[in-house]
Nucleic acid binder design. Sequence first.
DNA 1: AGCAAATGTGAGGATTATTCATATTTTTAC
DNA 2: GTAAAAATATGAATAATCCTCACATTTGCT
Lengths: 209, 209
Amino acid sequence: MEGTPANEQMAPPRRAPIQQRSRERVERMLAAASALIAEQGSDAMRMGEVAERAGVSIGSLYQFFPDKRAIIWALAERYTAESQACISAELKGVSDAAGLRRAFSELVDIYYGLFLAEPVMRDIWSGTQADKALRQLELADSRANAEFLVAVLKRLRPGADPVALETTAFLVWQMGEAAVRLAISVERQEGYRLVAAYKRMALRELLAE
Amino acid sequence: MEGTPANEQMAPPRRAPIQQRSRERVERMLAAASALIAEQGSDAMRMGEVAERAGVSIGSLYQFFPDKRAIIWALAERYTAESQACISAELKGVSDAAGLRRAFSELVDIYYGLFLAEPVMRDIWSGTQADKALRQLELADSRANAEFLVAVLKRLRPGADPVALETTAFLVWQMGEAAVRLAISVERQEGYRLVAAYKRMALRELLAE
DNA sequence: AGCAAATGTGAGGATTATTCATATTTTTAC
DNA sequence: GTAAAAATATGAATAATCCTCACATTTGCT
């Protein structure tokens, strides 16, 4: 599934690596792409350079990735899968307001920290909107994460309208992504303030009514 | 100034149109670009096509715009200037909570409506993050707009910490842009709910404490 | 061994942003 | 009014890249 965004308007699909050999080579390709993105950004990443650094031919690259975007998509998918697991774990046991406060604050900090520490993630997700497939992945990810939040909210406010909870959770989550992206693109000091303000704002909404 | 983002890492600057003749031609270039973006998106917009549709040579295009991004930037700048005037007018006289509620709600509706109605704006601002210069323009715009909000907040809450107000206003504004972009990329029905939820969330924050 | 499927290769096709030497028009200087 | 200077116009040619494809090699299987 990796490297093949299930999406309309995509390039012709490629074969998935079956043999051990090709699986290892695909790993090298992704590693090379990751390194290049970290160094120069995904826009400046050249397919020829990825192939060279991975020690494979340009043809091999295209054997497994239909086009340049697919490589970036594959990297993005790994990040989302990883963070989704983390989010699920953090929110799993929460069942009261204090617990939500703690877990939510923790999550935002982790997410913010990830963006600060991972240039690749920063690059990929700041260019999100330009790419239909990536945008789709982000929305799906956000919805999935919002679900965990909805589960918590249902425990906290059993009487509330489920649709309203969905909406709130989804919105809060997307606002969080936007807030973190904003925070990393301003001075560190101001970034902290913005993230803190977001936490207050989000928790006020989540715990209100 | 148009067509020349004041920014690092930009292409060599071009001459500004001085004579009547060239000013009209530049207008035609921008109109052609706008039409093409509306039809196919800025990514699919071809420089040659812009020139052809504007009835000028490809060389003339590059006489006034250093590169493709500069054309998009020039269009974006017009939108921001226009909406900034609108925002300023709407918030100018607000001096109580009820007034803020009304004006803010109005502004969000206008902004949401603009995005729904203007394919060019939608295209440009959904690709924002990918382009450094555009991102810069967006942040500057957001800060400017937040200032109007800060002015109102200072009237409403004279005792509050100015820095906190700045932070809140800036964050709320950016969240608004994110919320509207989110709203237009989901089903209409859900979009409405999300925008409404954003309004509640933002106003709760703006009027709190 | 021998066949089929999977994988590997890199020169070359195709597209497109951008440049530049040159021609034309407008403004300015006298 | 005229000549020099500045502004503007042009499009063939350049350059940079993504991606394809026809053919070579390796692996898995019987």
